[in-house]
Design a protein around this nucleic acid. Structure first.
Lengths: 145, 145
DNA sequence: CTTAGTTACCCACATTTACCCACTATGGCG
DNA sequence: CGCCATAGTGGGTAAATGTGGGTAACTAAG
């Protein structure tokens, strides 16, 4: 399970440290340190999938008829820009420029656990995202939480 | 079951002692000392979930379609700010700065039992919360209590 | 084959966190 | 009233984590 958010800095080479708790989660929960990082479908951030979750995602895509134009977009934007990687001995991964640009990553990078995946945001966009504009209580009621 | 409220002091490192009765409740009622602490959805306080209750909460979230924008807000604010932890040998946990800030915790911290979770308030906000501005009797009537 | 650019790996340092020990305060009980 | 057990608090230290930079291996283009 990936929970919590952690800020790490990306160096000029484009390397960022994956927070240790998330690396632990990969090892303990999935028994596989491989991960896939790619553009998020909905937002201006990246998303890290443990290999197993990525496979499930691909399976879900396979169920969509290939005539569906949205599917083809997702294929191109998400699948085609994905990288498979593992953290190096220092716990870091190298993010290719294309991914960095998509998420507008500059220096400080936010890793945000999202139960079975991890979101990767530029600090500024992240701050904006979690700003305290109240969540509608009726909506919460409706969702049963 | 968590009931009652207890004040403990947070030190400069951000450590606070979890009241012993609540630690006992974790051990006895849940047989699992792990807990998750995160921002409360509604109020300016933190909320401590026994691991089991947290899992239930996540299950409830999974039932909501991920296209729902409120869900994604909750994911980011609640799931992404959560920490999984256990009390150390002295019975304390370390609260990260982001959580301390959200609940405006300074020195004295109030732990308030709330049946299956525990609320964590800054003393001042807590005082304000339990002030005697009357509860509307009609509302009570309506709620059947 | 050579060379420039990129990537992977290694070492060293700074910072943070987890863990341990010791002391104080409080409440129950004889 | 004093003793003991438990709860809570403060601080020191070793280990873990994160960061910066250097060098060797690799890749791709000329």
């Amino acid at each position: 399970m990936f929970i919590g958010n952690y800020a790490n800095t990306m160096d000029e080479k484009g390397r960022v440290n994956i927070p240790a708790v998330f690396r632990d989660a990969l090892r303990k929960d999935y028994d596989d340190e491989r991960m896939v990082i790619t553009r998020d479908i909905r937002d201006a951030c990246l998303r890290m999938y443990p290999m197993h979750e990525w496979q499930s995602f691909l399976e879900a895509l396979k169920k969509i008829p290939s005539s569906n134009p949205t599917l083809r977009r997702i294929q191109r934007r998400v699948v085609s820009s994905a990288i498979e990687c593992m953290a190096d001995k220092q716990g870091r991964v190298l993010l290719p420029i294309s991914l960095r640009e998509h998420a507008q990553l500059s220096k400080t990078v936010q890793f945000a656990g999202s139960s079975n995946t991890v979101e990767i945001w530029d600090e500024k966009l992240w701050q904006h995202e979690i700003e305290d504009d109240a969540i509608d209580p009726d909506m919460l009621e409706q969702l049963g939480i």
